[in-house]
Structure formats: C-alpha cells, structure tokens
Amino acid sequence: MNIVVLVKQVPDSGSERKLDPADNTVARASADNVINEMDEYAIEEALLVRDREGGEVTVLTVGPDSATDAIRKALSMGADKAVHVSDPAIHGSCAVQTSAVIAAALSQLEYDLVLCGAEATDAQLSVMPALLAERLGIPQLSGARKLTVEGGTAKVERQTDGGYWALEAPLPAIVSTWDTINEPRYPSFKGIMAAKKKPVETKTLADLGIDPSTVGLASATSQVLDFAGRPPKGEGVKVPDEGDGAQKLVEYLASQKIV
C-alpha cells in the first residue's frame, strides 16, 4: 500500500498571524511557522494503515524552502520519504492553483491512498480533497473520523452534525481526517535522528511540467483587495460576583432585550 500524506506548513495558530501589506498574501517569512496541526492526524493515520497493510508513506508538501521543517517533523513521526515542491513562482497561489500543483506532483508518484488534514489552519478552506478528487478523477472521502482499508476498498465514517455518514469507495482514493480520528504520536529521539537520513526530493514547476505563468499571485482565480484589523470592541463591563452576579447578568440581558 503506497500512501501519500499532504502536509502544509502554516503560521502557528496560537501566535499573531498577519497578511503582508506588500501583496496581501499570508505573511509566512515573519511568522512562527509550524506543521499544520490538522495534518498530524493524517500522518498518524497513514502510519497506522502502513503498519497494518505494509507499504510506504510519502510526505508531499507544496511550500517555500522553509517548509522543510514541517517535512522533517512528518519524517520524524515515521513517514518514509518526502517530496517538496518549491518554486518562487508559486508564491501567492490560490487554492485552485495549488491543487493543480499538488495534482501534478501526485501524478508522478504511485499511490493507493492520499491522506490530508481536514483543514489548513491558515486559510481554513477544507476544500483540498474535493479539488484534488475533481482533478485526478479519484474518489473523495472527506471529514473522516474513522478509516478502514480492506481489499481495495476504503471505508470512512464522515463526521456530520450529530452523527456520521458511512462512506465507501474503491482505491485509489483521497481521504481527509478530523482530529477525532486518532491521537498523533510524538516523534521519538530515534525517530528524529532517523528522519535526518530519509530522502527528501525537491521539485520545481519545470519538473512537474507546469507553466509558471499559470500559478502565483498574478494569475490567481481570486484576489485579496484589502484587509484591516477587526475594530477593537469597546471596553466591556466586568463585575465581581458578590452574591449579586447572576442578578446583574440577568439585568444586562434584559437591557439588551434578550430576556
């Protein structure tokens, strides 16, 4: 079973994140960049499937050179090798363009299963599996809280409001994972040392046969026109509870015509 895990490097969701006023793209150079936390669940699931079914786990990342940190993290968790697509022309690409790059990179790999996170915490789109399934003509089983692979079939429990949908599709397929699917492992010291020797293949747009003018900010399918910090809220009221906290709260709700 050959498994490819899609891993994105993103600005830490716990730190202050910004857009770059120069071109309105996510300020990645100045950010505290980490592996997209949601992708750790996809990596963990890939390792679990590999350990049951045999085969190899390949990490695939499209991102600037600094994204190697995210790749190393995935390798230190236990993935076998990585492909890193990096090309200055990709800067500022929209999701539609990025999906073309990932699809081209996937087409140069052998895979039975593609795993990705349910969403990247920077742009919070949750659309990559749909875009890739559409481009590659493979089944999309997104939002998995449970995955089983047997006899060439993928079965997924897709998390929904108040329950789940049981999905089934033939391999090869793309599956995105929610944070309810497993508990990602921490890289061991041995894993961290081993990761340093694992192969990371770097590819450019030329290697993928993609015309650079079709990706990047200038030809993106959507554009950020402007942005601003959300206006700060006016100072709120804060009262200590001296036995009358509930009463003051209800009076406030009444003043807002809520009760």
């Binding site: 809220k233 709120g236 009221v237 804060k238 009262v239 200590p240 509870d241 906290g245 509930a246 009463q247 003051k248 709260l249 209800v250 406030y252 709700l253 009444a254 009760v259």
Partner: peptide, 28 residues
C-alpha cells in the same frame, strides 16, 4: 475571554449559572 466580553461576571460558575437560570425562568 474578558477582553472580548461585553459583559463579564467574575465568579464561580456553580453559583452564578444556576441562579441566573432561575431568574431568567422566573421572568418568563
């Protein structure tokens, strides 16, 4: 959370919440 709040009560939820529920129900 108080930085965001329009109205905040600093207190133990175990006393404030049931009392508020009671008063809201009484008003209705």
């Amino acid at each position: 959370i108080f930085e965001l709040a329009d109205f905040g009560v600093v207190g133990d939820l175990n006393t404030v919440v049931p009392a508020a529920t009671e008063q809201i129900t009484a008003r209705k």
